[in-house]
């Protein structure tokens, strides 16, 4: 008797050579990203909906209240680190981000339109807008 069943097993392999190439490419980009982030952090840029601040990373500790659409986001900057202490946003991703200390690191609170970023030498052009 002839078997008329069709095989429903997946036609695609779990991995192919192209997959491995893709992963190697991503690892390469990661290395490139590490190169970009070299250097020490100097300034902390805090951006709110209306106002922005620039504070020295290594300066004395300061607390900033940033007004956003949901309320006040409190950011602590100084002594070599920056951190969001309290935020009115529902997801609290900015609080979970913890302390940032190195150049290129950042904290984003999208719901309250606040961002914090550590800048190094040569990053200042990012501040002009």
């Amino acid at each position: 008797m002839q078997d008329t069943r069709i095989n429903f097993a997946p036609k695609r392999d779990f991995y192919t050579r192209a997959d491995l190439v893709l992963i190697l490419l991503l690892a390469f980009f990661f290395g490139l990203g590490c190169l970009l982030n070299r250097g020490t952090g100097e300034l902390v840029a805090v951006r709110g909906q209306e106002t922005s601040w620039q504070l020295p990373l290594a300066g004395p500790e300061k607390t900033i209240e940033v007004q956003g659409p949901l309320g006040k986001t409190v950011v602590k900057v100084g002594r070599g680190e920056a951190q969001v202490i309290s935020s009115p946003c529902p997801d609290q991703i900015c609080i979970h981000s913890g302390r940032i200390t190195k150049r290129g690191q950042g904290i984003i609170c999208a719901p309250n339109h606040v961002s914090v970023q550590v800048l190094g030498k040569g990053d200042y052009h990012a501040l002009t807008h």
Binding site: F29, L36, R47, G104, G106, C109, A110, A126
Partner: peptide, 21 residues
């Protein structure tokens, strides 16, 4: 980045690339 006017997009590309693996 669009919502929070975050300028650090470029710096995150490397981290994101490797986190996707």
């Amino acid at each position: 980045s669009l919502l929070a006017d975050f300028g650090g997009f470029v710096y995150y590309l490397g981290v994101l690339a490797v986190a996707a693996v």
